[in-house]
Amino acid sequence: MSITEHFASNNAPGYSLEETFDLPVRLDRAGKKAAIETELGKDSKRSDREIARVVGCDHKTVAAARERMGNSPPTPTQRRHMLISAAEDFSAKFPEMARAAP
């Protein structure tokens, strides 16, 4: 039995190969995807690069996962359209406060 198999078969809580030998954790694709989603769930306002450093992947991988989850911030163009729409709604609701066009 290899050492990896020994630790994998041991069901004792808190007893892992990485903790015992102080090895870095290497995640496969599914593991990284799950870790990214967990980190985004904790605090989605953190940058892609910060989450990538924690998980151990590329920032573009985090950006793709953020987009898949529908958790991506608006692009500058989308933000501009949202602001214009909000200003138009405000002007329609409060015409007396709307400034006269030059």
Rank of each mutant, 00 (worst) to 15 (best):
V54K: 10
F90Y: 14
V54G: 04
A87E: 12
A65D: 01
T20C: 09
P95W: 07
F90P: 05
I3K: 09
G41M: 00
A64W: 07
M97G: 02
L83D: 08
N10D: 15
A8G: 00
A63W: 14
D22A: 12
R46I: 06
R29N: 12
Q78A: 13
D89L: 12
Y15C: 11
F90I: 04
L23I: 13
S91H: 05
H81R: 14
M82F: 11
S85H: 09
L23E: 06
A92N: 08
Y15T: 10
R80E: 09
A64F: 05
F21V: 07
G41T: 13
S44L: 05
M97H: 13
R99D: 12
F7I: 08
R80H: 13
E19F: 02
T61W: 02
G14F: 03
A98M: 10
L83W: 11
D89P: 01
G56R: 06
Y15K: 10
N11M: 05
E39W: 00
F7M: 11
E67C: 08
M97W: 09
E18T: 07
R29M: 11
L83G: 02
K33E: 10
E5N: 10
P73V: 15
T38W: 01
V54F: 03
D48W: 00
S72F: 08
T20R: 14
K45T: 14
F90N: 12
M97T: 01
E50G: 07
G41W: 01
D43H: 02
M1P: 01
F90G: 00
A98Y: 04
A30R: 11
C57R: 09
K60A: 11
G14P: 04
A12I: 04
G70K: 07
E39P: 02
T20I: 10
I84G: 01
Y15N: 11
R80G: 00
D28V: 07
I51Q: 05
I3Q: 04
S44V: 14
R49K: 13
R79I: 01
R68V: 06
A87N: 10
S72G: 05
K33F: 06
A87R: 15
A34D: 05
